[in-house]
Design a protein around this nucleic acid. Structure first.
Lengths: 245, 245
DNA sequence: TTGGCAAAGATTCGTAATCAATATTTCCTT
DNA sequence: AAGGAAATATTGATTACGAATCTTTGCCAA
């Protein structure tokens, strides 16, 4: 009963199938700390609680161990791993984490990561982006311009722009930050829009694009630094003591 | 027979149990591209090929989908996901990736990531490391000094130093790069030691430590940039055309 | 030939029952 | 009190069966 508000069976739950439904329910419960004092249930208990077969339970648990949230040993049971073992760059973990608190604190952590990654990605893109990749970046910018006039979704356009640059870095590890950046922007928009009713800064985005297209490595890095620096400033000015959970 | 050189059963294989053994075997096979032309086997085929039960097969496949390598749908079968969907920061995926090629190419991609992350981590550490964290950084450096005189393992000491700084950043996302940095250093040592018989650069490491302890944010960033810049220079000078696989 | 619809087939999804392996705890014997 | 053996709890693994979900095939009719 700790597990979910509704102890109903999982058959109508989210997810493509029972296993994914349970994965989602358990992952969310773990991340929000629903088991913090107590021990994690055994396979048998989980199966019973959710009126689900043991196989499905085992598969969901195995997926959670694959993501670093759990570990299991015979006779000892299944235990929750320390947060340091969680794979924070996993899409699901990121999603659950965000539900726990869309606090400014988490947004700040995201942004601290972005300020390290994205300027360097822009520099690499300036150095080696292919024609196709340059075009994708420009396309993202054009979507943002279209969004200014209500012809496109401003958030999705913004995300497309940043992701295009990550891809254009030519380094698959950079491209992995897709989800982090996307999540950060989705969260960000709730704050930045609320705080200063400002719309996305087209001029500064264009500066990044122009520098990359001009193969200006230093310029691309600097322009992107400015872009994200703005976000961080906004977060910090709006950070009033006691707001953080 | 595509799967593994030895079509023996999995009972003597690596891994804590059958599921993990199969996970490892399949993960490695996928990453090295053993299924590149062909379709991925069905559950039934996998079970038969490895003389293993269907449940174990399903659990291993589920773990691989959790890591982004596979996806499964009824009637359609199990299919390998594009590399862009793989979770490259997963410890296992990283390990498999490294077995595919410990090429200079992969080492360069690691280093491009480090040059973005670690200087910023050093800067954050300089800004907010606790006393304990400062002590851990100094301890890492001392281990490196001890290693100079054969009293400790130089590689492990080097890793400990860099990981301590990642942790001291106070941002859990930075701490996640533990594995990437550790892997990069382990790979790196094979090259850097071979190319220039040089030992780890204690002086430059000490400069990073000193700057962090002195709360010198800019200095810490610059010192770490120099450190990793050296590695990148070494990689680039040793990069002869045709070496990349 | 073409269009549509129904039947067959393949594959993952899900349940159930059962035994094995592995630690831990309990308890008996010395 | 010590040591070891037995009971016990929990994950690990096998097997067999049926359900759900698509795809493909093939038939029938316009």
């Amino acid at each position: 009963m700790v597990v979910d508000g509704d102890p109903t069976d999982m058959r109508t739950q989210l997810g493509r199938n029972l296993t994914h439904g349970l994965l989602d329910t358990l992952g969310r419960s773990i991340v929000i700390g629903a088991y913090d004092g107590k021990a994690f249930p055994t396979e048998a208990e989980l199966a019973k609680q959710h009126s689900i077969s043991r196989s499905v339970t085992r598969e969901a648990v195995k997926m959670l161990t694959a993501k670093g949230l759990l570990s299991a040993r015979p006779r000892q049971g299944t235990i929750i791993q320390p947060v340091s073992a969680w794979n924070l760059f996993d899409t699901d973990v990121l999603k659950w984490l965000l539900e726990r608190k869309f606090s400014i604190d988490l947004l700040r952590q995201f942004s601290e990561l972005r300020i390290a990654i994205e300027p360097q990605a822009a520099a690499l893109a300036a150095a080696r982006a292919t024609d196709n990749e340059l075009q994708a970046i420009s396309a993202g910018l054009q979507r943002m311009e279209a969004a200014e006039e209500g012809l496109d979704d401003p958030l999705e356009a913004d995300i497309a722009f940043h992701v295009a640059i990550l891809r254009a870095s030519g380094n698959p590890f950079y491209a992995q930050f897709r989800d982090v950046v996307s999540t950060a922007l989705r969260t960000s928009i709730r704050f930045t829009n609320r705080i200063a009713g400002r719309t996305a800064n087209i001029v500064e985005h264009a500066a990044v694009r122009d520098a990359i297209v001009a193969r200006d490595i230093m310029g691309a890095r600097a322009a992107m630094e400015r872009l994200i620096g703005d976000v961080i400033d906004l977060i910090e000015t709006s950070e009033t003591p006691g707001t953080a959970s």
